[in-house]
Design a protein around this nucleic acid. Structure first.
Length: 268
DNA sequence: CTACAACTGCAATGGGTCGC
DNA sequence: GCGACCCATTGCAGTTGTAG
């Protein structure tokens, strides 16, 4: 990736450093790539094109894909110091890494909210696709104090814009039997294109989830991709019901081996 | 040559265990 | 009883490796 500096630039160079960031593909590079691919299969969207480009075994192919990069964090650093996120970003930029030019140091929660709202519309003018804004506590001492739960830091969170919702028909509800014996219903959908990908199935998790949403076989439903990726049935479109929709019940026996299905009391 | 399994990131759900 | 943590399950696009 040409945008990654081969040598750190600037005055202050640490002995050893880990720069973390996000690799992406601009809308323009994505469209160009698909033009070049004209004979073979096209990439569905920039996100998957970027992911696939990274997984190439031959790095020359990766290099030809015009991937881009924004540094957003220093993971480890030896021989230097910084006290907050803002300084870290300045350092990363001085070393020659691209840093997002739209970073903003907010002083109040209102300011954070305004920033998120502002970009909900303005994001469409960016040369790449985004699905939200990352909000961080700048002060490193406060980050330390807040700590991390599992893999999620308590000092950073992503604000996601509402994903695109599309209407389609719930053709059927079927069940899978998991390795542990769990009975997992899933939705068979009339395939729909949601921003580049075809969605034909979605997990419904359990019977309670189906009942809470009041999903009926034959319903028109709203479907989205949570986090712009995972297919999810949001809710039925009740106004479009004809009366022919079927209320769903779990089968009484395993569709594979005919063993009776039991429900453990107080469990999903 | 095609088909398919394994793996990855992404989110949302639930269950089980441990320690306080 | 709750927080923390780990695991299971689900689907799509993509690459890689292997089976047929």
């Amino acid at each position: 990736m040409r945008v990654i500096p081969q040598r750190l630039r600037g005055e202050q160079i640490p002995d050893r450093v880990e720069v973390r960031g996000e690799i992406y593909m601009s809308t323009r590079s994505f469209e160009k790539l698909n033009e070049e691919m004209k004979d073979s299969r096209l990439f569905a969207n920039p996100r998957n094109a970027a992911a696939g480009s990274l997984r190439q075994k031959d790095s020359r192919i990766t290099a030809s894909r015009h991937l881009d990069f924004f540094g957003y964090q220093i993971g480890y650093m030896q021989g230097m110091d910084f006290t907050n996120q803002w300084e870290a970003l300045q350092l990363i930029r001085e070393w020659g890494f691209p840093v997002n030019p739209h970073i903003h140091l907010a002083r109040t929660l209102d300011e954070v909210m305004d920033y998120c709202k502002k970009w909900e519309q303005e994001r469409f003018n960016l040369p790449y696709e985004i699905d939200g804004v990352v909000i961080k506590i700048s002060d490193l001492a406060q980050q330390q104090e807040l700590g991390t739960v599992a893999r999620d830091p308590r000092w950073a969170i992503a604000f996601k814009y509402p994903p695109t919702q599309v209407a389609t028909q719930l053709l059927d509800i079927r069940v899978n039997i998991g390795r542990t014996g769990s009975v997992n219903p899933w939705a068979v959908l009339e395939p729909v294109n949601i921003r580049g990908v075809t969605v034909a199935r979605a997990a419904l998790h359990n019977e309670g989830d189906v009942q809470r949403k009041d999903l009926r076989v034959g319903d028109w439903v709203l479907v989205q991709r949570a986090g712009e990726v995972i297919p999810q049935v949001v809710k039925p479109i009740v106004e479009r019901r004809t009366g022919k929709e079927q209320v769903y019940h779990l089968p009484e026996r395993c569709p594979l081996c005919d063993t009776p299905i039991i429900r453990i009391p107080d469990q999903a």
